[in-house]
Amino acid sequence: MKHLTAINRKAKRVEEYIAVNEEEDDVFALQQGPPQQRPHYPVGCSLVFSPGWEVDVTGGTAGLCQPVERDLYDCYISCYWPAQVPDHLNNYPDWTSKCANATKDWRKIDLVFP
């Protein structure tokens, strides 16, 4: 099979991601064992507005981040909701380059149209 540059680019970003993140204390959390509960998403919520990012497991907003901008980077970096928030890994490596702290600088991020 022919090797495709896109994939190599992607692989490279995965490596970059680990390199960057290995320094952060996030990784220590690994030693605390397997997750206690499954990630939080709205089981059964499937109106055609893309569900998941916008409501919590009860179908409301009480469980969203307060404010939601605090959560934006986790979503972006880990591409947790790539259908709602741009993903860092492949499609939008520079999405937040103008915005160091989303809670303060959220006015500097763009709506994107893949």
Binding site: D26, A29, P35, W53, G63, D71, Y80
Partner: peptide, 11 residues
């Protein structure tokens, strides 16, 4: 959306 940092790292 309530996903902790620790969980992200594990994941």
């Amino acid at each position: 959306m309530q996903i902790t940092k620790a969980l992200v790292a594990v994941v």
